[in-house]
Design a protein around this nucleic acid. Structure first.
Lengths: 342, 342
DNA sequence: ATGAATAAATGAAACGTTTACATTGCCGGA
DNA sequence: TCCGGCAATGTAAACGTTTCATTTATTCAT
């Protein structure tokens, strides 16, 4: 008995045609003031709610967008989704959300579902932007989309990210400047994250520039938070690593925990750097030194760009947003440099 | 030229009627095998994708659900949304996501938008389940919904949560058993979160049971992470608080940071307890002792219940899921009890 | 051979909108 | 008085499905 009032009912009740009711809803200016009021009254008493499916069927536009992220468990994604959602709400767009769990296979399925829902466009983070069936498919079918966090090589693909390699390079230089010479990188699986790989490249390039060649790379799964075993080897050998660069903050926080369990102090014995700039990084002890990405803003910008693509007012382009290094206490001078009292 | 193939086109191409095409899609069993194949072939070459809006218009069912949480910035919500999404995906449901930023006003708007989208049901966390215009409206209009995290007094409202008061009671007893007598609670604004209030009640009840009456309550905003000033007073007076119970983990982590800045060690000088059991709590130093909620599972159960309500197979009911105290190092014996070497 | 029963496919009417086009009534200018 | 023009409203045809009631083709018992 509820929620079933249709435009016909409203029309009948207010003694006008459905066309007029439609006009009252969409172009109230074209209808006599008095009629507008009558119709509005009728809508109110009937508790009328336009059926968006009828509307969408006719309009061939859904005013909704799809969002695909690897996971919501990492705040870096949750935050930008928050940004997207806020901006979308303000623009009267509905957000359809899905997660891929870092799986390329799930990605394809998820996007397919989103397209079944006839979203007007997509914002997504894929495992590998430069070789993605999903990206190819969307391009081929001419569906507006914006990559988020991914930094594709092809400049004609719309994307919003920071410069991953450059920022990792910056962070590594920062550590070099602090006197560190023995590095290692803890990175999320390259096969699951092109960002991780790009950050490693920046890291390696910075080290190469300083004449350091043999920094170990430790790839871990994204669900891996027990780093004690995996880090023991490199932190305690005869030439122990003093600077640990991590490809994201979650890993960095886990790494700090692992160091502690191994009896090492951070940053006195080993410095740890993160990536992302998630909020908890600033709350923990020691405060995490990280490459900060403007997550919220990235979400907003991605949505703004997507809107442009949808209306046709914008062309696809790659947006690199500025990053910066947070002041954190997880990085200190290398003990190999400072501790020479022997 | 793309994505525009309609059922008509498929029908024409394969030399059958639209009705047959429709059956091939929905009830392939009722169609001759050979025809099925012809039609499927046609769909493939035309790159046909059923128009969900046409379908929804006819079916008066959207196979989508709305999700409303206060924010995605708190992992406790992000995690359960993750759980909901996963389960929804498995059930072939689409998730429409919105956030209220802890504002009752936004809640109403957001739900209205969700209803405009004709979702089949809703999962939501409201500021105050016992006095919510949104809850009343949904009940009145007979729209299937499940509260998540909220623990309403009325048992006829579908909800999935832990027992907030009881769990806070448990945690407080745990601290009492450790010898603590000087308590304070740091809680999110009651006006923004009924959970916060319920947890305070459990806290206060436990203290009353132990004959302690004067524990200060410190209400803070949910965006507030700088607790140094606000905690200075109670932690450093002549009768300093030794046990700090926080209404969520984010606050607890911030509180630990504040204690440190004030020169206090956790847990040696002051014990800090959290609520929620978010993942980072286990990664930081000291490991956070917290009331763990099964966030992911709560999301899944909420969805399961909602599905029941939608199909009519289930009646609304309040589900209390089990909580437990995590083993954390942020809680120690009261120094007022143990440090009596004088 | 005939007709009844069954299987396979079709035709056409919804579903609730939007919108191009047609109609009505009214006004002012000639 | 008549007519062109404008404002306000109405009519009806889409939009792409699903589905009920039919039709057509096939099989089988008699």
């Amino acid at each position: 008995m509820n929620a079933k009032a249709t435009m016909r009912d409203v029309a009948r009740k207010s003694g006008v045609s459905v066309a007029t009711v439609s006009r009252v809803i969409n172009f109230p200016g074209e209808v006599r003031q008095e009629t507008v009021e009558t119709v509005n009254a009728a809508m109110r008493v009937l508790n009328y709610r336009p059926n968006i499916n009828g509307r969408r069927l006719k309009a061939a536009q859904s005013r909704s967008i799809g969002v695909l992220v690897p996971t919501l468990s990492n705040p870096v994604f949750a935050d930008s989704v928050q940004g997207i959602e806020q901006e979308a709400r303000a623009a009267g767009l509905t957000v359809l959300l899905t997660a891929s769990n870092y799986s390329a296979e799930h990605e394809a399925e998820a996007v397919s579902t989103l397209l079944d829902n006839r979203v007007d466009g997509l914002i997504l983070t894929v495992t590998n932007a430069d070789d993605s069936p999903v990206v190819r498919m969307l391009t081929r079918e001419n569906i507006p989309f914006v990559l988020l966090y991914n930094q594709p090589t092809n400049p004609d693909i719309a994307a919003v990210s920071v410069d991953n390699a450059q920022s990792a390079h910056d962070m590594t230089c920062h550590l070099l400047a602090a006197g560190h010479r023995n590095f290692a990188m803890v990175a999320g699986r390259f096969s699951s994250s092109d960002r991780s790989r790009q950050r490693y490249e920046g890291f390696a390039r910075a080290l190469a520039g300083a004449g350091i060649a043999d920094a170990p790379l430790i790839e871990v799964g994204f669900e891996d938070t027990d780093l004690e075993n995996v880090l023991g080897g490199i932190l305690q050998g005869e030439k122990p690593v003093t600077a640990l660069v991590c490809s994201n903050d979650i890993l960095a926080i886990a790494a700090i925990g692992a160091c502690r369990k191994l009896g090492l102090r951070v940053p006195d014995d080993v410095s740890v750097a993160g990536f992302d700039g998630i909020a908890v990084g600033g709350l923990i002890q020691p405060k995490l030194c990280s490459v900060v990405q403007p997550t919220h803003e990235m979400g907003r910008q991605a949505l703004a760009l997507l809107r442009g693509l949808i209306t046709g007012e914008a062309k696809p382009r790659s947006l690199l947003l500025p990053h910066y290094l947070s002041e954190g206490e997880s990085i200190g001078p290398s003990r190999l440099v400072t501790s020479c009292p022997l």
